[in-house]
Amino acid sequence: MIEAVSFLPITLTVNGVEVTRVVEPRTLLADFVRDDLGLTGTKVSCRLQVCGACTVLVDDLPVSACTYLAVDADGADVRTVEGLSDGENLHPLQEAFVEKFALQCGFCTPGFLMMSKALATENPTADRAEIIEHLEGNICRCTGYRPIVEAVECALARMRKVPSE
């Protein structure tokens, strides 16, 4: 039988805000941010780490939150799609996605944005081939991908001109 579940306290920073919660050890980071913190921008689809919809940044690196334990994010700096813009203006990636029609239903979009944000940090001069390779792990069923590639190219170019972002 199932043993009495123990709960563990975790403290982490999410979108710049420090949060402390007590969670079941099996709690996944995706469910933690969605259900415990109400940050429902992060979406879950395949639950097998292959569609990329649930991508968030943990200490600036992209992870599939559907298969990442919340307790493993203890002490980490987590960023979700809600933390991408500064609250006033869209992030250049968000703006480019809207301009280029790089989404339709939008369910995969938070994952694409966070994965692209990681690329912008790691390789701000990425060319088209590098963008495609970087985003190969994210599935979009609506757009046929080309508008997404164009949006990321456009955003990276703009961010190079305004290096603060």
Partner: peptide, 13 residues
């Protein structure tokens, strides 16, 4: 699309 890129858009889930 703006609601969708900020994560504010509400889906059934």
């Amino acid at each position: 699309l703006v609601e969708k890129v900020t994560g504010a858009a509400e889906y059934c889930v």
